[in-house]
């Protein structure tokens, strides 16, 4: 049971900004309980569900969290409530947190409910916050049936009555129940390629294709991953493979718009077994009519003008015009 060691000596890591986002956001259907909840928010009311033993759960659930019995009696709670837990966000994130200034996160138990909601408290300064503080909703003027319709909880003075929701200024809001919400999610990353892929990408910048040889066999893996995918053993011996290879299998795409990076249809993607490599690699086949591409076809690398450590520096492959490789050469990959 010991520590494991560091890898080989470093070059500067290759890092790229990466955004994970579903354009337009996920659309989620709500089901009966959350439909009642979000319809209530749109109409300026807080809705929970009553359980058989008389507890009120908010947000409402479709089933009793304790007994799993189906629930269907929706009841109005609040709108005032009590903070049961809180923290403070000193630096809100634009595009994520909907309040622009510092705010509190809190669990708020609306009057008449037995559970609490996660909410934001627009309290100005954290000194105002406490467990037990009384709060009331500040409703959005434009309410469309999302959690943001309850714009924020605000401190409620002793004995004061919560302000009613203002008339909904959203255009085209009807009486129909809210049945779906759209949830935008965006995450950002700084991805680093790793040691072995960085060597491969740096090779591309020099128009070289670099793989790694297995420790226990003569297999050369392209692109290299730092280990032998058959045994898991580390791979450290670098090998430059040929720039010609054999199509082992391919696909002709006739559907437009599958990827922002895709060329005009029809186009061909293929697995290409480079000469000297043990694993085929994926690339476009250009320079011939798609119908001419076939298993066993001999191809050579096509390079872009850029000399960058970027997978797109290797544009793809084009026919060499040589006779096809014999079936024996590529049958294990077909």
């Amino acid at each position: 049971m010991t520590a494991t060691s560091e890898g080989p000596a470093p070059e500067a890591p290759l890092v790229e900004h990466h955004v994970l986002e579903y354009p337009g956001g996920y659309t989620r259907s709500l089901g009966p309980a959350l439909s009642a909840f979000f319809t209530g928010l749109r109409d300026g009311r807080l809705v929970g569900a009553r359980t058989a033993d008389g507890r009120v759960v908010v947000p409402p659930a479709e089933h009793d969290p304790r007994t799993a019995a189906p629930l269907g009696e929706w009841v109005e709670v609040g709108p005032a409530g009590t903070v049961t837990a809180w923290t403070w966000v000193a630096n809100p994130k634009p595009g994520k947190h909907h309040l622009s200034g510092p705010f509190g996160f809190a669990l708020v138990r609306p009057d008449g409910a037995d559970t609490a909601l996660v909410g934001v408290v627009d309290a100005g300064v954290p000194e105002v916050m406490s467990v037990g503080m009384r709060v009331a909703p500040r409703w959005a003027r434009v309410r469309t049936g999302t959690i943001h319709d309850l714009e924020a909880w605000v401190p409620l003075a002793d004995g004061a009555a919560p302000a009613p929701a203002p008339p909904n200024e959203a255009p085209e809001v009807g009486e129909e129940p809210v049945t779906r919400i759209v949830c935008p999610i965006r995450l950002e990353y700084e991805i680093n390629a790793g040691i072995a892929p960085s060597r491969y990408l740096r090779g591309l910048a020099q128009r070289r294709i670099i793989g790694q040889r297995a420790r226990d066999s003569d297999h050369v893996y392209v692109p290299p991953r730092g280990s032998d995918p058959m045994t898991g053993a580390p791979t450290e011996i670098e090998v430059e493979v040929g720039q010609t290879g054999t199509v082992t299998t391919f696909c002709i795409t006739n559907i437009a718009g599958l990827s922002e990076l895709a060329p005009p249809i029809p186009y061909v993607t293929a697995q290409v077994l480079l000469d000297g490599a043990a694993t085929p690699w994926f690339g476009l086949v250009t320079g011939c009519d798609p119908t001419e591409v076939r298993m066993g076809m001999r191809v050579r690398a096509v390079w872009s003008e850029q000399a960058a450590p970027d997978a797109r520096t290797l544009v793809g492959f084009e026919p060499t015009g040589e006779p096809d490789a014999p079936y024996e050469h590529w049958k294990d990959y077909a």
Partner: peptide, 28 residues
């Protein structure tokens, strides 16, 4: 984002925000 995607995650509380709230409840 492991929190409820309907009523909690759209407010973007972080894991630490949720833990800090639990700490405040335990202290109180």
């Amino acid at each position: 984002l492991q929190a409820d995607p309907y009523t909690v995650a759209p407010l973007w509380p972080s894991a630490t925000d949720l833990a800090a709230m639990a700490a405040s409840a335990a202290i109180a």
